[in-house]
Design a protein around this nucleic acid. Sequence first.
DNA 1: CTGAAAGCGCTTACAG
DNA 2: CTGAAAGCGCTTACAG
Lengths: 333, 333
Amino acid sequence: MGIKEIAKKAEVSPATVSRVLNGTKAVSPELKERVLSIIKYEGYEANHIARSMVLKKNFTVGLIIPNISEMYHRIIFSSIEETLEEAGYKVIVYRVKDEPNHEQVYWDLLMKNRADGIIIMHETSKPEIYSQIKNTSVPVVLCSINIPSMDIPKVRIDDYRAALDGTRYLLELGHRHIGIILGRGYSAGDQRLQGYRDALEKHSIAFNSELVEVGEYTMESGSRAVTRLFSRNNAITAIYSMCDEMAIGVLHGLRQMGLSVPEDVSVLGLDGIDILPYLCPPLSSVQQPIPEIGRQSAKILLAMMNGEQVDTSPVVLEHKLVERQSCRSLLTH
Amino acid sequence: MGIKEIAKKAEVSPATVSRVLNGTKAVSPELKERVLSIIKYEGYEANHIARSMVLKKNFTVGLIIPNISEMYHRIIFSSIEETLEEAGYKVIVYRVKDEPNHEQVYWDLLMKNRADGIIIMHETSKPEIYSQIKNTSVPVVLCSINIPSMDIPKVRIDDYRAALDGTRYLLELGHRHIGIILGRGYSAGDQRLQGYRDALEKHSIAFNSELVEVGEYTMESGSRAVTRLFSRNNAITAIYSMCDEMAIGVLHGLRQMGLSVPEDVSVLGLDGIDILPYLCPPLSSVQQPIPEIGRQSAKILLAMMNGEQVDTSPVVLEHKLVERQSCRSLLTH
DNA sequence: CTGAAAGCGCTTACAG
DNA sequence: CTGAAAGCGCTTACAG
């Protein structure tokens, strides 16, 4: 059942059917009504692929997501999806695993006309992918990642400040031996480390590399990281895990070691995923405006797909420290 | 840059290019090589939409997911995606919200030729959708839901048995006042309730409807449900929350009421999501083979999309009780 | 306001 | 083994 059959039954041309379907051009009321009633009667729906073909538009955007921090990325995914759906787009997830030839995922999306736009949340280590992205004609926005060399729109928080603010919070509670856990492989890590160092410096505390650990953005790696931290240095009184999912593992690891939170050790997370208030103790965290990051990324992509010229200077969204019950003050009043 | 230009540069016909691209028909080695080298040189990739158009195939499957039990559904999504990806399919998520006119989501998928197959994880209350599904020519499989009246493939656990086994476990630990929390709106709820009742009956314990609560598959609703349960009956010594995500809320709610798990109250979940070992206490749960449910659903759909005749009798996968530290025996030895 | 015709970029009988 | 041609189901100048 195609547009032709509808046209025949309504005794008009396919062009007319197309016009009433899309409202692209005026059609006389009588023809319009005739066509509409046939369409309704037959339960006809235009073939989406054929439309895509001639319009050269997929109504689809590709979302490149790493396979880390699942809870964080799920929230972003939802908000991107919601925003894009309102505009009539569907999103297809391209999950990149840490396989050596992960560039295939990008290639698929960049070269095969599969998507009208791309949102990238994964930082690749392969420079050839970056030049590919620069050369493609499909709009790309970087969501929650930071690749300064790419002159394309990006939406994220200020990682340096998020690290600095969180560390300062712990310092102001009187902590002096603050372990941090960073995530591996993302450029945010460097900035976060710098934020931590600068916060220490302002409080005249020497940086000690023993207090820095790296994890893989999973609960399990968080648990292992905190164990390593304490095996090297047991003067630690606070942990700033710069990824909530790892912080869940930190709580677990500390429990395994027989340490109480916040009595023995204070724990601070970063991200602001949904489960934090339900943890034990409820986890304090430097919260990203996660849904807003997704929403803004989607909106910018939408503008680009509509051919608008967009500003490529980074959109930096505000984080905010949310206190719950996992951090304790060491100061006596 | 299309197949025509490639053909011209290689001095062959578009048909030949298509044949080397798809390997559908033998091509002489010399032509093949000539074409291949041009393709490589030009970085050509076939236009996916044009292929879809003539092949009448999208290489896409639609996944209808409810907006509940996010952690559970994420795992299924991942395993479905992985299985389908190996076969060259992409998946598009259709998230159905509880809006009154949620049938639009189904319509989109069922009528607009958007997907070659559909996996449904959402139970709708609208009978017209079921008849729509019955009439469609696109393959559909029901994943982790149970609609007996639909004569199409389904993959799930035995909800009755899962409820029965979990309840029996608590009974055998000596619990006599066992509260349960069911999820709203899914037919599994009835079977689970029956499993609970039958387990009680075998232990000659009278059913007490005061001990049954219903939640919305969220942490928050679990927390509220357990509060209601205790406000009605404080002899309860165990809670069987038949959804892990709600069980997380149960732990939280009990903590709020000043009750310890498992000292004061034992808590048992159902699903087997990733976070259970990291909770405090680590949550015992009747575990579904979640990735396997997704995998099998995808495999059956794949077979159907290949035109194979498949068995429509339900595939029932085994659950298993995983003991952690949230349940305590009341028996003294 | 309406229709005949070309065309989107592929694949595949069909003929050779 | 190879190519010319038709066709997938739409949209949109173009002409009237």
